[in-house]
Design a protein around this nucleic acid. Structure first.
Length: 193
DNA sequence: CCTCAGATGGACT
DNA sequence: GTCCATCTGAGGC
């Protein structure tokens, strides 16, 4: 599958968020290739978005990655326990990103199952299968993504995104768990299949 | 299906 | 000291 290049990411964040649906996240690890198809994303646009870590261009050590040119990762720790994977978008100096909120296994599910649950794929309950990677923390656990992968370029191993499946009916809604963000909490910037 | 508490640590004020 | 772009397991319906 063709890897997405920089010009895919250095565009309008909402467009990238929508077009990432159906694409494949590929994680190479210990000789294994793990692939999830992206099923849910959210856009964060620092210039206007109180839910964005870099709202109003607030630059700190953590958010400095968001100011980079589109095409690299932004990975941060949330609730002291989980990682969230974002794709940095737009031009350098505009702090924007797309949160990858969910995916479905395409390849390497045996290895991902060990990472996610510490069990063999065949031992998973239907409940565990249903909830395999349908959340940003779960997705990162299944792919062994943590802050060590913050800021890596997404057009090469060990982490990249490729063309995937054609998506027909993309749905739109409010973003999840950003009640603190005042008017931005109502922005329809969540996209899912 | 639902709700709720607890885990857990770093970023920021 | 407070807040968090979350998840899990327990308990109720």
């Amino acid at each position: 599958m063709t890897r997405l290049k920089k010009d895919f990411y250095t565009r309008d964040t909402l467009r990238v968020a929508k077009e990432l649906l159906g694409k494949y996240i590929v994680r190479e690890l210990d000789g294994h290739r793990l692939i999830l198809m992206i099923t849910e994303t959210e856009a964060y646009i620092g210039s206007v978005d109180k839910a964005c870590h870099a709202y109003n261009y607030k630059k700190t050590e953590r958010t400095s990655t968001l100011f980079r040119e589109g095409g690299c990762s932004y990975v941060y720790l949330i609730y002291g326990m989980y990682s969230c994977l974002n794709v940095v978008t737009d031009i350098e100096g505009e702090p924007c990103a797309v949160l990858i909120r969910g995916g479905e296994p395409v390849e390497g599910i045996e290895y991902m199952s060990r990472l996610r649950y510490g069990k063999d794929y065949g031992e998973l309950t239907s409940y565990q299968l249903k909830n395999f990677a349908n959340g940003p923390g779960k997705l990162c656990k299944a792919l062994a993504i943590d802050r060590e992968l913050n800021g890596v370029l997404l057009d090469r191993p060990p982490l990249y995104i490729t063309e995937g499946r054609e998506v027909q009916n993309c749905k739109t809604g409010k973003r999840i768990n950003i009640d603190y963000a005042e008017e931005a909490a109502d922005f329809p910037w969540r996209f899912y299949i």
